[in-house]
Every structure is written in C-alpha cells, then in structure tokens.
C-alpha cells in the first residue's frame, strides 16, 4: 500500500439523543482503495447506515454527534468541512443511493428534469449540453428508450427502472465514491442481479469506489472486494472477501455463514441449519465485553470480561475476537455436514 488510502475512517463514533448517549456507531475504522468495493454487512440496527450517512454528512443538524479521529476522502479532511463544503462534495465527489428510490425522487417532476438539475447543481453548462449528458447517462444505465423516459414521471417506471434512474443521478457528475444503502433489497432477484451487474460494470468503467451496505451475504459474495462486518454498532471483522467467507474469524460472521440457507447446484441441501441463538441486542442492553458474547457458541470467560482488541488473522484480515481460529474454514462446510 502506497500513500494515503482513498477513503480513511478512524474511530468513528456516532451518538444520538441527549448528549449523544445512544451510540449507534462505536469506534469504527476502515479504509477503502479507489475503484474498489467495500461491503458493509450487518443487520437492522447494526449501525451500517448511520456509518454511511456520517461519511456523507447527511445527519440532520443537531441530531447526531459525530466524532472521529480521521475521516479523509481523496485527501480532503471531511471533519473540517462545513455544511456548504459538504454539500458541494455531495454529488461531485461522493453520492449515495437508497433502498427506496421513490423517496429520493420528486413525484411531480420528470426524470429528465431531475437528472438535469442534479447535473447543473455542480457543473456549469448549457441546458442543451446538460440534456445530452442526461441522455448519455440514461443509456449508460441501460434504460431502454431513454429519450422517451426523460419525460416520464417516477411513478410510471418499475422499481428496477427507478433504481437505475437513481444510479444515473448519483453518477451523473462522476463521483469518485458511491455509497449504496441496500439498493437492491426491495427488488426482485432477477432485477437485483441486473442492478448488481450494472454497478460493477460502471465501476470498471469510471473507477468509482463503492461502499455497498447490505445484510445479504449472497450479494456480498457477488460484488465485494473487501468486507466490513458490523454488529450492534461496532465493526467486528474486516478483510478481503475471500478471507471473510472462507476463513471467518469472528463468531458473528461464522455464525451468519453457517446459519444461511443456500443452494449450490450439484450439492445436497445442508441438514439442519446452525442457529444463532438469541436476539439482536438493543443499544441500551449491550452485554459487557464482546457485544456478541451472549449469542456466540465459542465464547470463553475472557469474552465476557472485556471487548476484544483487533487481531490480525492474515494480511489485511482482522477480527475483534479472542477466538479467531475456533471457527475453521467454511469452504467444505456443506460436505462436512451432509457426510
């Protein structure tokens, strides 16, 4: 690794409520290289979306207490940016797409108009040139019949089309970082596959770095270069996608992989699924020590006493677990269980 990473987050903590007492994100650190995809994995309430909105600076003023040692994007210290600078960066340097495209599109305006406005907000050009750019980007996200779609309203499009429009809107100013918050969760699998395919195509073409937020391990395996696993507000494991899937080093990651019912052609179905017992803890009821300790099959005494420190498993793969070798590889899991 040479020089500074494209995006660098150190010790990000985000609190809500009076005095930031409800800490939705605690001490999160990760890096992202330019042009790579980082998947932020976690369940509802794990803090993955809050992490993303903190990078984008999208919290309502006064609602969240964001603290971090470092938050640098492309050499810019985001912690020092005021609201005006942030809003200039949003759209031009970084952009975000959401699970529900309808909530980010104005139902009363045409697609073409909204895309053009997004473009003109950041770049000075004639309406004609802007329209040409909009056409180009619509074709780029594979909207069939793009010229006609420009005068369509959001409700006239299918969910998949709307998400393509959102991607077009996010990419129209060629941002270098795209944050995608569960963009395919509301879509059907065949449409999800199209959107994932489109994102990776666009990434290859424009060299955009992507933070992809999801709870779906299948999607992670499909698109991630690196993975960061979040649980109850903290990062518990991070590393390259192959390492995470083949050699998970945290009880939560391993538990999730074993608990997921998957279909692999040619292989028999796994027997009984391995359950993760218990429920996701709420922020006000976090256990002492490792936050996963009460649900972890491999927990030992020390897990109850203190929050484990980061440990390197292999190069670039680290886990916040005192028992990182206990889980073993998952690659042959299916065969083991069915044998």
């Amino acid at each position: 690794m040479t020089g500074e990473p494209f995006l660098s987050i150190r010790n990000l903590t985000v609190g809500f409520g009076a005095g930031g007492a409800i800490r939705a994100v605690r001490d999160v650190s990760f890096d992202l290289e330019a042009g790579k995809t980082l998947c932020l994995v976690g369940e509802s309430g794990s803090g993955k979306s809050v992490t993303a909105t903190s990078i984008m600076g999208l919290h309502k003023p006064g609602s969240a207490h964001v603290e971090a040692a470092t938050m640098r994007l492309d050499g810019i210290n985001l912690l020092e940016c005021d609201e005006r600078e942030m809003s200039r960066l949003r759209g031009s340097l970084m952009a975000m797409i959401f699970q529900d495209p309808m909530s980010s599109l104005n139902p009363a305006l045409t697609i073409g108009f909204q895309l053009r406005e997004a473009l003109l907000l950041h770049e000075k050009m004639s309406t004609r040139a802007a329209n040409a750019r909009v056409m180009e980007v619509l074709q780029r996200v594979r909207i069939p019949d793009a010229a006609r779609r420009m005068s369509a309203y959001p409700h006239q499009l299918s969910g998949g089309m709307r998400q393509r429009i959102m991607i077009a809107m996010a990419l129209i100013c060629r941002p270098r970082l795209l944050i995608a918050d569960e963009p395919t969760t509301a879509l059907d699998v065949t449409v999800q596959a199209q959107i994932l395919w489109l994102l990776s195509e666009l990434q290859r073409e424009f060299g955009t770095a992507i933070i992809f937020i999801t709870h779906d391990l299948g999607v992670v395996a499909e698109i991630a270069d690196d993975v960061a696993v979040m649980y109850a507000g903290s990062l518990v494991e991070r590393g390259p996608v192959h390492a995470i899937f083949e050699n998970p080093a945290h009880g939560y990651t391993a538990g999730l992989l074993r608990a997921t019912a998957e279909f692999v052609p040619g292989e028999p179905s796994r027997g009984r699924l391995e359950e993760i017992p218990g429920n996701v803890p709420s922020f006000s009821m976090l256990p002492q020590g490792c936050s996963f300790v009460e649900r972890c099959r491999f927990a030992v005494d020390s897990c109850h006493r203190r929050t484990p420190d980061w440990r390197d498993v292999t190069f670039g793969h680290a886990s916040r677990c005192d028992q990182p070798v206990a889980y073993g590889p998952t690659a042959n899991l299916t065969v083991e269980v069915s044998a």
Partner: peptide, 12 residues
Amino acid sequence: MTTVSSPALSKP
C-alpha cells in the same frame, strides 16, 4: 445475563 447500562441509556 450481565448488561451495562449507564443512567443515560436506561429506560426512557
């Protein structure tokens, strides 16, 4: 079950 809850985090 051991849980920590600071005064600020206890029940609203």
